[in-house]
Design a protein around this nucleic acid. Sequence first.
DNA 1: TCAAAAGTGTTAGATTTACACCCATGA
DNA 2: TCATGGGTGTAAATCTAACACTTTTGA
Lengths: 224, 224
Amino acid sequence: MAFYKDYAKVLVAVDCIIFGFDEGKLKILIGRRKIDPGRGEWSLYGGFVAANEDVNDAANRVLYELTGLKTLYMRQVGAFGKVDRDPGERVVSVAYYVLINTKDYDDNLRRQYGLEWVSVNAIPMLFSDHNIMVQKALKLMKQKISTEPVAFRLLPPLFTLTQLQRLYETILDTELDKRNFRKRVKEFSYIEKTELIDKTSSKRGAYLYRFNQHHYQEEQTFKL
Amino acid sequence: MAFYKDYAKVLVAVDCIIFGFDEGKLKILIGRRKIDPGRGEWSLYGGFVAANEDVNDAANRVLYELTGLKTLYMRQVGAFGKVDRDPGERVVSVAYYVLINTKDYDDNLRRQYGLEWVSVNAIPMLFSDHNIMVQKALKLMKQKISTEPVAFRLLPPLFTLTQLQRLYETILDTELDKRNFRKRVKEFSYIEKTELIDKTSSKRGAYLYRFNQHHYQEEQTFKL
DNA sequence: TCAAAAGTGTTAGATTTACACCCATGA
DNA sequence: TCATGGGTGTAAATCTAACACTTTTGA
């Protein structure tokens, strides 16, 4: 069943840029590479695509291995195919970015894998072309977050408007006007105010909001 | 030097979505597949990535083979990695979209390769997942064209404002106001009016404009 | 002389931005 | 009682959208 003889086969890998929002900073998960070549260098977390595995599934598998989380928000960044990008052997890698709520990620698991959350403003030199992957992922993610409500993926299910605003400010790297921000939020039916109040961040307490996926999809279909 | 033994290697291919603007329509180049499996089906033009070839270079090579053109505007659409996407064998494919001025493309070459320009509004069923590639390429291209001046890549070096407007109208699938459009164009220093006049499309004649890449890059760097 | 495309400004409406004070509470 | 973060509306400025007539020329 070899239709396409005479053509070269190469290893295909997936690499994950895992974004989290913590301590008012946008961070990614990186670790020290545990295999040669490049052992000990900072690196994204990745893995090889198996013979009978969808590339997207491979990314999901790798991510599940790592975090124990499923149904994450994941988008492809692109394929990276320079010949010598991996010093070991030719590997074509497909990068994905993922948005997670850092609170959902077990910190023991993190330590077990030897991973660290590092601010996107202070990313060290990474293995191979991983810095380029991260930059591209960041660009795509910023673009996405400014046109679609995916910010929620980086927050707990219930969040205050101040939290949401800080998140947008951090990602878009700009200050937003509190009143204008709240005015805008009111227009989106998919951002639901609850009667719950968070008192951890202020004495007075702030209303908690939640994202209603159902309402969002309704709006989307209505647009067509 | 095999560092990563025990992992599966797969064929990697590139597929090209070649956009052109002709007869007031946005079109792509497709042909009848000449190899098994799927021989005779409509398909994008593509090729396999060689052992020592950058994936991007492979796309450029395939495109040069096909069109004789270099330095085309080319962007990656993404990697397509379903296990059974190719009925012959496992192939991970990286899709690219390309913008060309149809006048630069030798029509004999087109016939030699058995390719046809088909309107993006009337694309037949294509081999494998190629329809999905085209849809994604279209979406990305529309997005790109509405934020960056790449439309010029689809036009001759000299063009009239009416041509430019029709191009935007076609791609964005919307009617634009002539006066507002021209007002906007005047603001962009990289769209230069020449003293040349085109008389093929009207009795009165229309001024020809050109795109000044240099001016565009200046504006870009200024933004930072 | 007339049909067909080129060219040109103004105004109303919509959107975006700027801005300052009172509220509730725990320490 | 006061320091801290939560919550609220209005007006100016900017941007966007709507709109109609004159010009040129070849047939």
